[in-house]
C-alpha cells in the first residue's frame, strides 16, 4: 500500500472514531492503534490478575464466613475480568500465552499499586474502597472507548465491579464502628493506601506521554490530573463518614475551585515501584510465573486428552 493510500485510510479511520463509530477486530486500523491497544488492554488484564494476589492472601484468614465468601467472589471476579480483557486483546492478533510471556519477562507493566503488601484485614477494606474506587474512575469512561471488544469487556467489568467498592467500604465502616483497635487498624490501612491510590491514576499530565493520542482514540476521556482530582473530591467526604483522617496535612477545600487542594505526591517512589523496586514486585512476579509453570503439565495433559478423544470419535465414525 502506498503512503498516500495509508494516509487516506487513516483519515477515514479517524473520522469514524470522531463520529463515535466503533472499530471492530477485522476493520482496517493503523498499526499504532493496534499496538497501543494491545499495550493498554493487556496492561489492564495483567493488573487484574496480579491484583488477585494481595487480596488472595487474606481469603484463608478472613474474619467471618460472610467476609470470606465476599472476598472469594471478589478475587474470582478479578480472574474473570482478566479473562474478558485478555480475550479482547486476543482479537488484535496476539495470543494469551504471548501476553503472559510479556508479563512474566517484565516487558509488560501492570498497575504498580499491587506491589504494595496487604498487611492487615483492614487492607481488604482499603483496597476495595480506594483501589477499586480509583479503578472505577478510570474504567467507566472506557465503556465508551472506540475499540468494540474493549468497550464490551469494560461494560461487563464495570457492571460486575459495582459490588467491589461497596464491599471494601463496608469492611472499613464496620471497623470504624468497632473497637478503638479496629478503628486504628482502618486508619493505618488508609495511611498506607492513600498515596499509592493517588499515584494509581498515573503520572501528572506534563509527564504523561500517551495522553494526547489516547484522547483522540477515546482510550482516555479525561487526563490523569482530572481523574485524580475527581477521585480526591469524591473520596474525602467518604473518609469523613468513616471518621478517618486522610494522611495529607495540605489537604483543604478550595472554595473558588470547588475542589480539594492536596499535597505533593512522592513521584520518586512512584517511578521506583514502576521500575520494579517496590516492596512486592519480585514476590508478585514469582507467584504469577510459579502458577503458570506449575500449570504447564496440566494444560498439556488436557490437550493430549482432547486429541485422543477426538481421534477415538473419528475412528468410531469410520
Amino acid at each position: 500500500m502506498s503512503e498516500e493510500q495509508i494516509r487516506s485510510l487513516e483519515r477515514h479511520f479517524n473520522e469514524r472514531i470522531a463520529r463515535d463509530e466503533k472499530i471492530e477486530p477485522k476493520d482496517w486500523m493503523p498499526e499504532k492503534y493496534r499496538q497501543t491497544h494491545i499495550r493498554q488492554i493487556s496492561q489492564h488484564a495483567h493488573s487484574e490478575i496480579v491484583g488477585m494476589l494481595p487480596e488472595g492472601n487474606w481469603i484463608t484468614r478472613a474474619p467471618s464466613l460472610r467476609r470470606k465468601v465476599a472476598l472469594l467472589a471478589k478475587v474470582q471476579d478479578e480472574a474473570g475480568h482478566g479473562l474478558y480483557l485478555y480475550s479482547a486483546c486476543e482479537t488484535l492478533g496476539i495470543s494469551r500465552d504471548e501476553l503472559y510471556e510479556q508479563l512474566h519477562s517484565g516487558k509488560a507493566k501492570y498497575s504498580s499499586i499491587f506491589n504494595y503488601p496487604a498487611l492487615t484485614w483492614a487492607d481488604m477494606g482499603a483496597i476495595g474502597w480506594l483501589v477499586d474506587g480509583a479503578a472505577i474512575i478510570n474504567q467507566v469512561p472506557l465503556c465508551n472507548t472506540s475499540y468494540g471488544p474493549y468497550a464490551r469487556a469494560m461494560i461487563r467489568v464495570c457492571k460486575e465491579e459495582s459490588f467491589h467498592q461497596r464491599q471494601g467500604f463496608e469492611i472499613m465502616l464496620k471497623l470504624c464502628n468497632g473497637t478503638p483497635e479496629q478503628k486504628a487498624m482502618a486508619q493505618d490501612a488508609l495511611n498506607r493506601w492513600w498515596w499509592p491510590s493517588l499515584m494509581m491514576l498515573g503520572p501528572t499530565d506534563d509527564k504523561s506521554v500517551h495522553t494526547e493520542q489516547s484522547m483522540k482514540w477515546k482510550l482516555k476521556r479525561k487526563t490523569n490530573d482530572e481523574l485524580r482530582q475527581q477521585f480526591i473530591d469524591q473520596t474525602v467526604p467518604q473518609a469523613d463518614v468513616l471518621g478517618l483522617t486522610i494522611p495529607d496535612s495540605d489537604l483543604k477545600w478550595n472554595e473558588e475551585r470547588q475542589s480539594y487542594d492536596f499535597g505533593e505526591i512522592d513521584w520518586d517512589e512512584f517511578w521506583q515501584v514502576v521500575k520494579g523496586h517496590g516492596p512486592m514486585n519480585k514476590e508478585r512476579m514469582k507467584a504469577r510465573v510459579g502458577a503458570w509453570e506449575r500449570g504447564t503439565w496440566v494444560r498439556e495433559a488436557a490437550m493430549a486428552y482432547a486429541k485422543k478423544k477426538q481421534a477415538r470419535k473419528e475412528k468410531q465414525a469410520v
Binding site: E90, R96, R152, A153, R156, R299, Y305, A306, Q310
Partner: peptide, 8 residues
Amino acid sequence: FGSLHAAD
C-alpha cells in the same frame, strides 16, 4: 457473550 480457552 465473549470467549475463553478450553482444551475441548
